[in-house]
Simulated assay, not measured.
Amino acid sequence: MTLEILTLDSLPAKHGFFTRRGGASSGVFSGLNCGHGSTDQAEIVAINRARVAEAMGVAPDHLLGVHQVHSPTAIVVDSPMPEKPRADALVTATPGLALSVLSADCQPVLFADAQAGVIGAAHAGWRGALDGVLEATVDAMETLGAARENVVAVIGPSISQRAYEVGPEFMDSFMDNDPDFARYFINGTGDRLLFDLPGFGLNRLRAAGVGHAEWTRHCTFSDPDRFYSYRRATHAKEADYGRLIAAITL
Rank of each mutant, 00 (worst) to 15 (best):
Y184T: 10
V210E: 08
N203K: 15
D105Q: 04
A24R: 13
R192A: 01
T94P: 11
R21N: 14
V152A: 03
D40Y: 10
R162A: 12
L6D: 15
A46N: 08
F195A: 04
W126N: 05
E142G: 14
G209E: 06
V109F: 02
G27W: 07
A114M: 08
D139H: 13
T92S: 07
E214Q: 13
F17N: 01
K237D: 15
V154G: 08
D191G: 06
V77E: 06
G201V: 06
I75P: 07
R51N: 04
N150M: 02
A239K: 13
A114T: 10
S100N: 08
F111P: 00
A163I: 06
E43G: 03
R217E: 15
G117T: 08
L11S: 06
P72N: 10
F29H: 05
G132H: 11
N177Y: 15
R86L: 10
R232F: 10
G201S: 09
S25R: 01
P12C: 00
A136L: 03
Y184Q: 05
R86K: 13
K84Y: 13
V101D: 00
A140T: 11
Q107S: 07
M141T: 07
V133Q: 02
W126M: 12
M1Y: 12
G57V: 01
D223E: 09
S173F: 12
S173G: 12
A129Q: 03
I186F: 14
V66E: 05
N177L: 14
H70M: 09
D139V: 13
S222P: 09
L102D: 00
V210H: 04
F221P: 04
A114H: 12
G65L: 08
L193F: 15
R192Y: 14
T39Q: 09
A208K: 14
C219E: 11
V69F: 13
I155N: 00
L32T: 06
F227D: 02
A121F: 14
G209A: 03
T92G: 04
G117E: 06
G31Y: 00
A129R: 05
H123A: 09
G242H: 12
H218W: 12
V66T: 12
D240E: 01
H123Q: 10
V152Y: 14
H212I: 11
C34Q: 06
R243N: 14
P224M: 13
I44V: 12
D176F: 07
P60D: 00
V101Y: 11
P157I: 02
Y230C: 09
V77G: 05
H212L: 08
T2Q: 14
N33A: 02
N177D: 14
E238P: 00
G242W: 10
A13Q: 07
D40A: 03
D105L: 02
A246K: 08
Y228K: 05
P179S: 04
F181T: 11
L202M: 07
N187I: 15
F185S: 10
G167E: 11
S158I: 01
S25N: 01
A13K: 03
F185H: 08
K237M: 12
V133L: 00
R243E: 14
Q41N: 09
I186H: 12
E83D: 02
G35C: 03
R206G: 03
C219N: 14
M1W: 12
A59I: 04
I159T: 09
T2P: 15
E169V: 13
G27Q: 01
R204V: 13
P157V: 00
G65D: 08
N33E: 04
P80F: 02
L97M: 03
C219W: 15
P12I: 00
S158K: 00
A50L: 06
G199I: 04
A153Q: 03
D223W: 15
